Every structure is written in C-alpha cells, then in structure tokens.
Measured scan of single mutants.
Amino acid sequence: SEEEEEEWRRAKERGEEIIILGILWKPNDEEAERRIKEALRRV
C-alpha cells in the first residue's frame, strides 16, 4: 500500500531495519528489497 511504501522509504533513508509485509528488511538487503517490491505491487 501507499503508506507501507512510504514507511519503507523512510526506513531506507534512516538506514534502519524494518519489518514490512512480513518481510524483515535490513539496509542493503537486495533480496528482501526485491521481495518487498513484488509484494507491494501485488497489494
């Protein structure tokens, strides 16, 4: 969703871990980033 995407962007800017759509994303975690982008597209 729009607000999840916004939340994720803010976490990326701050360089902090975030759990979004049930996926743990850490800074520079390209695999998780790809999965999150896929999940955001499906929503």
Rank of each mutant, 00 (worst) to 15 (best):
E6A: 07
R14W: 06
E31R: 04
I18T: 10
P27Y: 00
E7T: 06
P27D: 06
E33A: 08
E6N: 06
P27I: 01
E31A: 09
E5L: 09
E7H: 11
R14H: 07
I23K: 02
V43H: 14
I18C: 14
R35W: 03
E13R: 05
E4H: 13
K12H: 11
R34D: 10
K26A: 11
A39K: 08
E16W: 07
V43C: 12
I23T: 01
D29L: 01
L40E: 03
K12M: 15
E6M: 05
V43E: 13
V43F: 12
E13Q: 11
R14S: 09
I18P: 00
A11G: 03
E38H: 00
L24D: 03
A11T: 03
A32D: 03
A32Q: 04
K26E: 05
E4F: 15
W25I: 04
E16Q: 11
A11K: 02
R14M: 10
I20K: 01
A39G: 08
S1R: 12
R9Q: 14
I18H: 04
W25L: 03
R14T: 09
P27R: 00
R42Y: 07
I23N: 03
I23R: 00
N28E: 11
D29M: 02
L24F: 05
E31S: 09
K37N: 14
L21N: 05
R42K: 14
R41F: 05
E3L: 14
I23L: 02
N28D: 13
G22N: 01
A39P: 00
R41T: 11
E2F: 15
P27K: 00
E2Y: 15
E30W: 09
K12D: 04
R10S: 10
E5A: 03
A32Y: 03
E3I: 14
E31L: 07
E2G: 14
L21H: 11
R42T: 13
I36A: 02
S1W: 15
E5T: 06
I23D: 04
K12N: 05
I23F: 01
W25S: 01
E38M: 00
R9S: 08
E4K: 08
N28R: 05
W25H: 01
E6D: 13
R35F: 04
W25T: 01
G22R: 00
E7Q: 14
E2T: 15
L24H: 08
A11Q: 03
R42D: 09
E16M: 09
L40A: 05
W25F: 05
A11D: 03
E17A: 11
R10E: 10
S1T: 14
E6Y: 08
I20N: 00
R14A: 13
R41S: 12
I19W: 15
R35Y: 03
A32R: 03
I19G: 02
N28G: 15
R10Q: 13
E2H: 15
E31K: 05
K26M: 11
A11P: 01
A11H: 05
E16Y: 07
I36H: 01
I18Q: 04
E38I: 07
E31P: 02
E7V: 06
I20A: 00
G22E: 06
V43L: 15
L40G: 01
E33R: 04
D29Y: 03
A32P: 00
A32K: 01
K12R: 11
P27T: 01
E16R: 07
E38L: 00
V43T: 10
E16G: 06
E4G: 10
E38S: 03
W25E: 03
G15R: 07
I23A: 01
L24P: 04
V43W: 11
E31T: 09
I20C: 09
G22L: 07
L40K: 05
E7K: 15
I19D: 02
R35D: 07
K12V: 12
I18F: 11
R35G: 05
I23S: 01
E16D: 11
A11N: 03
G15N: 09
P27A: 00
I36G: 03
E7G: 07
I19M: 12
L24M: 08
R42M: 12
I36N: 00
E31I: 08
W25V: 03
E13T: 08
I36V: 13
R35E: 11
S1G: 15
I20D: 00
N28I: 00
E13D: 10
W25D: 02
R9A: 11
G15S: 06
K12Y: 12
E3A: 13
R42E: 12
K37Q: 08
N28Y: 09
L24Y: 06
I19K: 06
R9G: 07
K26V: 13
G22F: 10
E30T: 09
I19H: 05
E17L: 09
D29K: 00
I18R: 03
E31N: 08
E3D: 15
L21V: 04
G22A: 03
E17Y: 07
R10K: 14
E5W: 10
R34E: 12
G15F: 04
N28W: 10
E5V: 04
E17N: 10
E33F: 02
V43D: 08
E4R: 10
A39L: 10
A11L: 11
I18A: 06
K37M: 09
E4M: 15
D29Q: 02
R14E: 08
E30P: 12
E3K: 15
N28K: 04
D29T: 01
R41W: 03
R9T: 11
R41V: 12
L21I: 06
N28P: 03
E4D: 13
R9F: 12
R10A: 11
V43M: 14
R34V: 09
K37E: 15
R9C: 12
E13I: 09
I36E: 01
E3T: 13
E30F: 12
E17W: 10
E7L: 12
E30N: 08
A32N: 02
E17G: 05
R14P: 03
R35Q: 13
I20W: 01
L40I: 12
A11V: 07
G22S: 00
E17T: 12
A39H: 07
E5R: 01
A11M: 08
L40H: 07
E4Q: 11
L24T: 08
D29I: 01
